[in-house]
Design a protein around this nucleic acid. Structure first.
Length: 533
RNA sequence: GGCGGCGUAGCUCAGCUGGUCAGAGCGGGGAUCUCAUAAGUCCCAGGUCGGAGGUUCGAGUCCUCCCGCCGCCA
């Protein structure tokens, strides 16, 4: 985590790697796997590096576990037309930090992510790469998993929309909606954007019938499609948003959603006659189900358990409704309008919140393949490591707003916060302990910390971090954790244990106590876990 | 064209229901400790809170208009 980054190299200090830990763990945080609590004194580690690990005693302060409460949160199921981009990584990093926090609160967290693998665009993309769709999907889906591993993402469920259990859920859901009278068949003729995989109003098109999103000409199509009666849900949706304005977050995005609904909802086509790569419509294998109708259901199908029944009711029983759908602002319409209407039609509960975060820019510019200025998540994590990447985006982007990345700023922030503040605090503390106390705490840290102002300060900051996490103010939560590091550094300077050690005698004993307080003040109160890296 | 958002210290941004709200981080300047990762700690920003009016005892914080970005819808 806390090695300084030079502008040209990834400079990890040997001190940070004394434990020979696997890459996906955090060697420098007070994790239990590297920071044992033992009464045996003294005790030296037997790590191959020959460096001593720190062993100490401290009463652990576990939060009370409320097994009854389940917190289900989701990222979108990412579309496998191309390998993961930074935006997907950003959503997933944020989701992971929220999942970790909710676990700390003692909740049973089900963190869902996955890949959305059907549709004409996927088939086209596969063909363009000389693959068949299943091969293509396997490859890209795996690249998402790889990236999540690289970024230390601990999801609980990874659902692929090509998974048979997902298909079963989609068909069952479709049947429910159909039975509720919300699906009907109609001819549709219009201009179709292959990239959006949907029909466009002529009014919204640019010159030459170009799609405003993809800047590509739409094609005239006539299809006999199945439609979902979205218009029936106009009033219910209006009511839900009025009664529960927190359904759409941040609040300023709610207006947008309300205006969409207010301007009138039109039934939308939920099948495609000319797309083979998809889930067949029940009782009509000439058509496949529209990708969004398919993909949204991944949030439910992901809940299924392998050894349990693979049906809607069972899946729902494992945690639906979701507490939070975390998405980019571009797909708000599908999550805040289509999805709730679909759920109502099927008689299922609605998710509690949809949070649409902003977009990332690079050096102040919109990222795009055509501009050739994309930020590649694999390259970034390879160059700087997962902790730095996670921290930078959570801290520097006000969650919900658009945010900017620049390498210069990235390096400055990571060095100042993670290396100089947190990393150095740990390093100087452990260094003093090693040099003067044989890396052994002979006094229980909890006892040593009793009545010390630092403890009180840290407790207040932990509370601040908790509040911010609960409000999804992730940047402020990071800030609070950094303040804990600052408080530790200040305390260290005030007490100057290195000076006391030199004086020897009673002063040296006091110096040791100063150091012994750190595990209790900084570790037991979850500082280590509150830092989202 | 309609609706909405944004415009606060060099940079990135916090500021909920109006009265310690003029702030934080980064950068920069100064001082200082020396255990530590050329790290730490302390002090320093006189910014007309985009502009102009208005409401109020009092407004970044509410209202109107204007300017500049951005989004959604048309």
């Amino acid at each position: 985590m806390a090695a300084r980054i030079n502008t040209s190299l990834h400079n990890a200090l040997s001190f940070l790697k004394p434990f020979n830990t696997p890459l996906n763990t955090k060697p420098f945080s007070f994790r239990r796997n590297s920071f044992r609590f033992s009464k045996k004194l003294p005790y030296y580690s037997q790590f191959s590096s020959g460096k001593r690990a720190l062993y100490c005693t401290s009463s652990s302060q576990e939060s009370t576990v409320d097994e009854g409460e389940t917190f289900v949160l989701t990222t979108p199921l990412y579309y496998v037309n191309a390998p993961p981009h930074m935006g997907s990584a950003y959503t997933t990093i944020a989701a992971d930090s929220i999942a970790r926090f909710q676990r700390l609160l003692g909740k049973k967290v089900i963190f869902i992510t996955g890949t959305d693998e059907h549709g004409e665009k996927i088939a086209t993309s596969a063909a363009a790469n000389g693959r068949n769709p299943p091969e293509h999907c396997d490859l890209i889906s795996q690249s998402y998993r790889t990236l999540w591993k690289d970024l230390d993402i601990a999801y609980d469920k990874f659902i692929r929309t090509t998974d048979p259990k997902h298909e079963a859920i989609v068909k069952e859901f479709y049947a429910r909606v159909f039975a509720n009278g919300d699906i009907y068949r109609a001819d549709y003729e219009g201009l179709y954007c292959v990239n959006c995989e949907e029909y466009k109003d002529e009014k919204e098109l640019l010159e030459n019938n170009c799609c405003p999103v993809h800047q590509m000409p739409c094609v005239a199509r006539k299809e006999d499609n199945y439609f979902f009666a979205l218009s029936k849900y106009q009033k219910p949706l209006e009511d839900i948003l009025a009664q529960n304005p927190r359904f759409v977050q941040p609040s300023y995005r709610l207006n947008e959603v309300q205006s969409w609904i207010k301007s009138g909802l039109r039934d939308f086509s939920i099948s495609r006659a000319l797309v083979d790569w998809g889930i067949p419509v029940p009782d009509d294998d000439k058509q496949t189900i529209y990708v969004w109708f398919d993909a949204l259901l991944g949030y439910i199908s992901a809940l299924t358990e392998d050894n349990k029944q693979q049906n809607l009711e069972t899946a729902v029983s494992f945690g639906w409704p979701a507490s939070l759908h975390l998405i980019g602002k571009d797909i708000l319409r599908f999550h805040a309008v289509y999805w709730p209407a679909m759920l109502m039609s099927a008689g299922l509960e609605l998710p509690k919140m949809v949070f649409g975060h902003g977009f990332l820019t690079k050096d102040g510019m919109k990222m795009g393949k055509s501009l050739g200025n994309t930020l590649e998540p694999f390259e970034l994590v390879q160059k700087f490591g997962p902790d730095a990447v996670r921290y930078f985006f959570l801290r520097e982007v006000e969650f919900g707003n658009d945010g900017d990345y620049s390498e210069d700023r990235f390096i400055k922030i990571v060095n100042a916060h993670l290396a100089n503040t947190i990393g150095n605090l740990l390093n100087r503390t452990l260094g003093l302990l090693k040099k003067n106390c044989e890396s052994t705490l002979v006094v229980d840290s909890t006892v040593a910390a009793e009545g010390v102002p630092l403890k009180d300060t840290v407790e207040k900051l932990v509370e601040k971090a908790r509040t911010n996490y609960e409000n999804l103010s992730l940047s402020s939560a990071c800030e609070a954790v950094l303040e804990i590091g600052n408080a530790g550094n200040t305390y260290m300077d005030q007490r100057a244990p290195w000076f006391l050690f030199k004086q020897g005698g009673v002063s040296a004993e006091e110096a040791a106590k100063v150091l012994f307080r750190f595990p209790n003040c900084h570790s037991s109160y979850k500082t280590k876990d509150l830092l989202p890296i």
